[in-house]
Simulated assay, not measured.
Amino acid sequence: MHTPKALPQPSGPPGRLRSSRFLHSFRGYVKYKYLTILFLPAAVYYFIFHYMPIYGILIAFKNYKFSLGVMGSPWVGLDHFRELFALGSFWQVFRNTLILSLYKLVFGFPAPILFALLLNEIRVSFFKRTVQTISYFPHFLSWVVLSGLAIQFLSPSIGPVNILLQMLGFKPIFFMGNAEWFRSVLVVTDVWKELGWGTIVYLAAIAGVNPELHEAATVDGANRFHRMRYVTLPAMAPVITIMLIIAIGRLINDDFDQVFNMYNKAVMEVGDVLSTYTYRVGLENMQYSFSTAVGLFKNVIAFALVLTANAIARRINEYGLW
């Protein structure tokens, strides 16, 4: 594969250096115009749908009126945040979000790593491809479909799980309407949906391991488990660290599609999370400023978590996002 040569780096006084760097970057985009063309659709998408709407955070500091628009609505400062922190219902959904996200981190984060290690040890290529395909498939289904399957599968009357429980002499369990079981259902279904897709990243990291390391370990008498522990896992450490930082940044976030399609009034106490709370307050009750304040608070916490996790990771093993 042809590797493009690096362009010469500019040098000189600070003012001239900034201008030279701009011209240097521009010439790079022109020189590799086909790569630039491939990059443009993604750049345009993020600019239109992720950067242009940022001005909307002003709504969190205003008493937004649809007829007046964002700029015409009166300023209220931090009133919405004071109201937010004074509500007991907000801290309940905040607690639910953290608990559910921690469960998903503890059980969902290591699952694709272990699955990738196990898949890598399979030597029958046909069986390996079949398992990969089956595990990837749920990722491409929406939560509307998967939640319907889960509800039917866990039904207390016709669900296979409860039929099996009754055959074993146990009483049927209403998983979707029982507060003690609902969080477990959310965690298990999330792991089931994303297990195969998350494995792709770790399989790519495993593919980059130098085969000579495995050969040397084999000569030294290491078995498959030892090679997995002392060769494969250390080689995956940079990727695992980056994925862990991203996962920690998502602790304050939640999967709205999953929770919205599965929860009901019977499990609202443990299933209501920040995204569903924002949806109800913002769209159903039309309190747009208040719901924007909730979203802004959530994003600030997520950003702080990413910074903290990255700093800790760089201090421990020198790997990080930057």
Results as ranks from 00 to 15, higher is better:
residue 261 N to K: 14
residue 7 L to Y: 06
residue 209 V to W: 03
residue 42 A to K: 15
residue 91 W to S: 04
residue 273 V to H: 10
residue 118 L to F: 03
residue 44 V to R: 14
residue 154 L to A: 05
residue 5 K to G: 09
residue 253 N to F: 15
residue 124 V to R: 02
residue 265 K to A: 10
residue 79 D to N: 11
residue 111 A to T: 01
residue 180 E to D: 12
residue 232 T to D: 13
residue 287 Q to I: 01
residue 125 S to I: 02
residue 13 P to I: 14
residue 240 I to F: 08
residue 57 I to Y: 13
residue 265 K to D: 04
residue 155 S to T: 13
residue 91 W to D: 01
residue 57 I to E: 02
residue 29 Y to F: 15
residue 201 V to K: 11
residue 185 V to K: 05
residue 271 G to R: 15
residue 153 F to C: 07
residue 297 F to I: 05
residue 136 Y to T: 09
residue 243 M to D: 05
residue 105 L to K: 03
residue 33 K to W: 13
residue 143 W to S: 04
residue 159 G to A: 10
residue 53 P to S: 10
residue 36 T to H: 14
residue 265 K to M: 07
residue 170 F to D: 02
residue 17 L to Q: 09
residue 118 L to S: 07
residue 22 F to W: 15
residue 175 F to D: 04
residue 192 W to K: 07
residue 261 N to F: 15
residue 43 A to S: 08
residue 291 S to N: 08
residue 121 E to G: 02
residue 294 V to N: 04
residue 307 L to S: 05
residue 25 S to L: 15
residue 243 M to Q: 08
residue 81 F to L: 04
residue 312 I to W: 08
residue 179 A to Q: 14
residue 69 G to P: 06
residue 22 F to G: 00
residue 79 D to M: 05
residue 194 E to S: 15
residue 191 V to Y: 10
residue 7 L to Q: 15
residue 66 F to A: 12
residue 133 T to F: 01
residue 37 I to D: 06
residue 313 A to G: 14
residue 26 F to E: 00
residue 27 R to S: 12
residue 179 A to M: 11
residue 24 H to D: 02
residue 73 S to P: 06
